[in-house]
């Protein structure tokens, strides 16, 4: 019995020191004014007021949501299509396709952001602008314009994660027993009906998993824009995310109170979105079950 507690204790000891205590302290710090040096001063809800009335904060919320949607939503569709194709029995070179499509995931976010910062630079001769030129389009300032930065960053998120999501969907498809399809074919169900009534419902848990990961990950976007923009990361607003706003308050402006307030707000955002996620998805599940009962 003692060894039970002993064996699980390392996690709790470390968590208590470097996890639990800092979280409590963050909550405390959110109500203090502090520059890291002079004594803290209790300011009530002022930090929250400052953050919530700062237009740059709302800009960062907007940026985070836009890049989150652009970077992750298309992955859902493309990922499912790729997984569906990779799951075809007669497909040749299956291993080759699987490995190459997954390969971007092993690169670090810093490496991806640096490669994309060169592919998508402001110059007319950058690869991205050259390709736009082939289609007769004007060059875009990828590093400084409102939509240029967002599209470049969303594309790098897409490029790095699409293989990961595809592999998860593929695992989902492979978990569906083949005789279900055979039985459906014998019963005269069309390919579309099979997709609608067998594939999608059974794939749902896997889709929910990726949607949940993507939502939480998108709200925490930091490395990609920071490295992509380099020197101007904390001075320009086009691609500033919530976590970058937090980081800037804390480690560039030494305003640790407002930064902690931002952290608390971010957590509330994540909790609310996760709850909405769960609510919507459980609702869909109920409807489907009722439909299937009839």
């Amino acid at each position: 019995m003692i060894s039970g507690y002993l064996y699980v204790s390392p996690f709790f000891i470390i968590f208590f020191c470097v996890g639990f205590f800092p979280i409590l302290f963050s909550l405390y710090l959110a109500f203090q004014q502090w520059n890291g040096l002079s004594p803290m001063e209790f300011v009530g809800l002022d930090n929250f007021k400052i953050v919530l009335t700062d237009s740059l904060f709302w800009k960062s919320v907007y940026n985070t949501i836009v890049m989150g949607l652009l970077g992750t939503a298309p992955q859902l569709i493309v990922g499912i299509i790729l997984a569906f194709l990779l799951n075809q029995v007669f497909l040749r070179f299956k291993q080759f396709y699987r490995v190459t499509i997954f390969m971007p995931y092993i690169t670090s976010m810093v490496a991806v952001a640096l490669v994309f910062s060169v592919l998508f630079s402001n110059q007319d001769s950058s690869m991205a602008n050259y390709i736009l030129g082939l289609f007769g389009l004007d060059p875009i300032n990828w590093a400084t314009s409102e939509w240029g930065t967002k599209i470049a960053i969303s594309l790098m998120v897409f490029w790095r994660w699409i293989g990961y999501n595809t592999i998860i969907y593929l695992a989902g498809l492979q978990s569906i027993p083949r005789d279900l399809y055979e039985a459906a074919t014998i019963d005269g169900a069309s390919k579309f009906q099979q997709l609608r009534y067998i594939t999608m419902p059974l794939l749902k848990p896997f889709i929910l998993l990726t949607v949940f990961f993507s939502t939480v990950g998108a709200l925490q976007l930091f490395s990609e824009p920071t490295v992509f923009l380099g020197q101007s990361a904390f001075t320009r607003s086009e691609a500033m995310t919530i976590v970058m706003y937090l980081y800037r308050d804390a480690f560039r402006l030494q305003s640790f109170g407002t930064a902690s307030a931002t952290a608390v707000i971010l957590v509330i955002f994540i909790a609310v979105l996760a709850a909405i996620n769960l609510y919507l998805t459980s609702g869909i599940g109920r409807k489907k079950k009722r439909g299937a009962g009839k």
């Binding site: 699980v8 996690f11 996890g19 205590f21 800092p22 979280i23 963050s26 957590v267 996760a274």
Partner: peptide, 23 residues
């Protein structure tokens, strides 16, 4: 205890960032 461990998974790492830095 097991559920407590699982619950720590949903805490975003940014929440403790500043105190962790000072710690």
């Amino acid at each position: 205890l097991f559920i407590a461990i699982l619950l720590t998974m949903i805490i975003p790492p940014q929440l403790g960032l500043i105190p962790q830095y000072f710690l």
